[in-house]
Design a protein around this nucleic acid. Sequence first.
DNA 1: GCGACGGTTCGGGCGGCGCCGAACCGTTCC
DNA 2: GGAACGGTTCGGCGCCGCCCGAACCGTCGC
Lengths: 225, 225
Amino acid sequence: MPSLAETAGLFADRTRAAFCQALLDGRAWTAGELARYAGVRPSTASEHLSRLVAGGVLAEERQGRHRYVRLAGPEAAALVEALASYAAPDTTAPPRLGAATLLGAEARARTCYDHLAGRLGVVLADAMIARGLVAADSGLAVTPAGRAWLADALGYEQPPGSRRPLVRDCLDRTERRPHLAGALGAALCATALRRQWIRRVGSGRAVKVTPRGSDAFHDLLAVTV
Amino acid sequence: MPSLAETAGLFADRTRAAFCQALLDGRAWTAGELARYAGVRPSTASEHLSRLVAGGVLAEERQGRHRYVRLAGPEAAALVEALASYAAPDTTAPPRLGAATLLGAEARARTCYDHLAGRLGVVLADAMIARGLVAADSGLAVTPAGRAWLADALGYEQPPGSRRPLVRDCLDRTERRPHLAGALGAALCATALRRQWIRRVGSGRAVKVTPRGSDAFHDLLAVTV
DNA sequence: GCGACGGTTCGGGCGGCGCCGAACCGTTCC
DNA sequence: GGAACGGTTCGGCGCCGCCCGAACCGTCGC
């Protein structure tokens, strides 16, 4: 039973925090990728990763000479998001121009742990609220119509006894407005990838809406993306 | 704009974490009280407090020779709760017997930041869900009936444009089940104190239901406490 | 005024943590 | 087999953070 201080300590280091934020894209990274990303030596990264895994924040999977690592679960991702959004409340500063092109792609559509973010994520969230699938008057909640839509459009049913909230809001880094996380957000993202409504581009978390996806989003939610 | 690591660093120390958890009772403590509570010298406590205040986690109020300090707001309290509940997922271990009497009072009814917790908090949450004032099927949400109840029984109306969720679940430390936080929880607790449905006992966060409160909870929610 | 008290500031000691380079291990590829 | 590569382990180094005691300041009570 770790203490609050020990748990916070896991994130209280520049390098470990950078790892966790990189892993918010929901994918598994190798140790070397993370080391380069954070600008530290492989040996340093290795020790940090061991510590995060021991602390239960990350899960690892060894394949050959590679060590793949990802966030341990939605709870861990939610905690990282909570810390990040508390740390940077509403930085209205525009992103630096040097990374404009990559940021452009990520600003349009990307994954955020296991759900969709960027302009796409916010537009979909707005559409679901506007169509009465999600109620946003007090926190967020899935309406009966939304539950039917989930089953009908995505083939998703909430597992009985699930502790995970069906929907949760997650502050969008680029749009500065909430998009949809929780089981609904995860199901939507997973379905979109599986049915090729979206496709990953580049090696980052950016995604692109395919023509098929454009049709699907239009049919299901009456949005043009 | 602090980084995630800097923010986490505020909580990554035994003493500062103890301060924050003590302040979860929602009241203002003096620097000396916190120093004794955490078992450090006043000089040490003073520096920690300055750091937490500078980091925006705590708010301070100077009165004469006293420095009163409290959690800066519901967001800060929610972050502390998130870290604490992630750190101690579900310790089923029974509390140690030495502190049984105090724990007994606190287990029955206490405050948790700005809302009610303990057996009382959980019973009230269950009652509000059972009576359809709060829907618990996907996350938590206040129903239209609940909104009317809030206005009628507590005289509370949600301020327009409020960012704070009307209701939020908060894992109860002693009951290991959720009770109600958010604006609803805060309004209920504030009203209960104002109308003397409950009274603080001792110097901790324990509260006691008054006879008047017993009647009120029975009339409003049909619960006997 | 004077003493008691709460709180702050400053200097110093100490331990821990994060970083690296070097050596090493297992896998993969030629 | 040998070389390249990803990852780990181990010393060692330097810094930062936590803690204390001592001195000091402002407030409160007598």
